[in-house]
Amino acid sequence: MSSRDKILAALKKNQPALVELPVLNFAGNASIDLKEQFTKTLTGIGGLVIEVNNWKDIVKHIQSKFPKPDRIVNRVAHLNFESDGLAYSSEISNKPDQQAGQKSDPHDFSNVTVAIMKGEFGVAENGAIWLTDKDMGDQALPYICEHLVLIINKNSIVPTLHEAYEKIGSSTYHLGTFLAGPSKTADIEQSLVLGAHGSKSLIVFLIN
């Protein structure tokens, strides 16, 4: 008898009479200002939230935040550092159309200073942003970069995880993640330090 069959047989024998699943009836308060709660929560866990009116503003913000990045990887077609007339000395590598669906070696991204990508939506109660491998391009990118920039639609924010999973539904992905703030640790005497292994900072742009 294989271990699989042994375990399954033991479970069948030992599990108690069926207990019904509860009916989940949770919903967040949609009447509160979701953008405000999202911003407050994400700021509280070390993220930076910036509301912008257009794509050009995002370029400006990024340029002022990172004046001399070694390498920027931009996954958002709307952002055009060159044609927006901004003098930006760094190489803009890995245009989204070139990378999507293409197999790449994740190690190639080990020197990325700033990675820019879209998120699917935000969650007000915990400041998390849902994104999947389709948004990431290479799945290592949001974790290996030094600074992460995410862009979400300001009307995409849902109150709680209940609405979030409703939105995700039964969609499929290789990797889906709720990402909430920069990488952090408090393992040394409970002192909070940002940038444990993943990105040292997270900037989220809210756009229409």
């Binding site: 400041g127 998390a128 499929t172 990797l175 993640t177 709720f178 990488s183 408090a186």
Partner: peptide, 26 residues
């Protein structure tokens, strides 16, 4: 997961959610 992820980090450290909640499907 909506129920468990709302409870997990808040119970553990008082964070609203862990920084990374990664769903590995494929």
């Amino acid at each position: 997961l909506s129920v468990f992820l709302r409870l997990l980090a808040r119970s553990a450290t008082g964070q609203p959610i862990t920084t990374y909640s990664s769903h590995f499907q494929k």
